[in-house]
Write a protein that binds this DNA or RNA. Structure first.
Lengths: 217, 217
DNA sequence: CTCACCAATCTTGTATACAAGATTTCCTTG
DNA sequence: CAAGGAAATCTTGTATACAAGATTGGTGAG
């Protein structure tokens, strides 16, 4: 992994987990001193961050970590909701043993993450793993990766929403329902389930009230 | 529009319409002479083209116009198929007069493009306009733009497939069916229709046999 | 004190020299 | 003649000086 990729991974991670708060200035010269690298390669990194809307570039003024765009969040949730509904239905009853075991193991690890220190970080990793594995098993990992390129806003939204522990239990339980459906096609309510699972309470005022300074105006 | 944006638009256009054939070398120095601009801003343009997979960058070797990736084509078609099916169903029977007129006008212009000189170019523009308008009317233009950022491969595939005139008539006819459904919800076969409309004959050997030199190996 | 204006100092944008790796060419050697 | 290797010449990658716009601070006039 090249030094540029390391820097990009590092910055992306810090922006996604809100260590770098929306509005933070990412000056090229400051970064070049921090990473002991000239401005040119750093500009490459910033260009990519801008294209994936991690940052907003204001020419001759500066680069700011982007504010969370709730419109983008809603659109991505809709996209995932429609797509995963279809993918899960197409996969139902056709799961091979290997895939089943893979999903069960992820579920256990996700459950195990709850309550431990640094819980949210691990929980979210396994949450992504669950959904990504479903895409993979359906031969649609390409689309998973496509969505990942545009999910900074969703990712940060999700983090702020999952600060309560009871939410985490609910999410794991919904994952269990999805796996059940994949194995037995029992639940007739799979569409509503997936809809609810991804949509969460996007329309609540929770974010606007508690994290207004992170939200795009 | 800045000079950089002009260059990028121009290069994107030439790659999409196959004026710049897959495998063509895009050297920074050659481009900098062609556009009378230094390498630095041109590298910005090439970086973006690379991120949208218009080109492949081989470090210290060169930049090549990417070969058509049929895997990417299939995945994008699946994505659009699933998404547009849902969007069209959600819009059926709820179309306002303004939207109806907009779609009808696009249909006429698309029909009118057939047979005239430079037909394919105009036809495809109105083809995109039809689908984009449907996304827009459903409040999902964000997702249309998202897909557009990853559709170089699909765009070129589509061009090679639409070289026959009878194909064009068929496409317009399918658009008429879609509009009918939006107005009357008559056809019960809307899902298969959209599926067929977008999928075309992706599994045919037409491309592999006639344009093997454009296809990713 | 307040407001206006100018200069100093930020920011990113551009041009260019140089570094380093890959390729090609051509000369040497067997 | 053929094959190997070194050097010239491509390529992109990096560092840095300079350009140009934006902001900020201070200073002087009213």
């Amino acid at each position: 992994m090249s030094i540029k990729e390391q820097i990009m991974t590092s910055l992306k991670h810090e922006i996604r987990n809100l260590t770098l708060k929306p509005g933070t200035i990412l000056s090229e010269t400051v970064l070049s001193e921090r990473f002991q690298l000239s401005r040119t390669p750093l500009r490459d990194v910033l260009k990519q961050l801008a294209l994936e809307s991690y940052i907003d570039v204001y020419p001759k003024k500066g680069n700011l970590v982007s504010y969370i765009d709730l419109e983008s969040v809603e659109q991505i949730i809709y996209l995932r909701s429609v797509l995963e509904k279809e993918i899960i239905k197409s996969l139902a009853g056709k799961l091979a043993l290997k895939g089943t075991l893979e999903l069960k193991e992820i579920l256990e690890k996700q459950q195990g993450a709850i309550g431990r220190e640094d819980a949210l970080e691990h929980f979210l990793t396994w949450d992504d793993a669950f959904h990504q594995t479903i895409f993979k098993l359906a031969g649609r990992e390409f689309l998973w990766n496509l969505i990942q390129q545009s999910n900074v806003h969703y990712e940060r939204y999700r983090r702020l929403h999952m600060l309560k522990q009871e939410k985490l239990e609910e999410i794991v339980q919904e994952h269990r329902y999805i796996l059940d459906y994949l194995l037995n096609q029992e639940s007739g309510r799979i569409e509503e389930l997936i809809h609810h699972h991804l949509r969460e309470d996007i329309n609540s005022l929770y974010l606007q009230e508690n994290f207004a300074e992170y939200i795009k105006g």
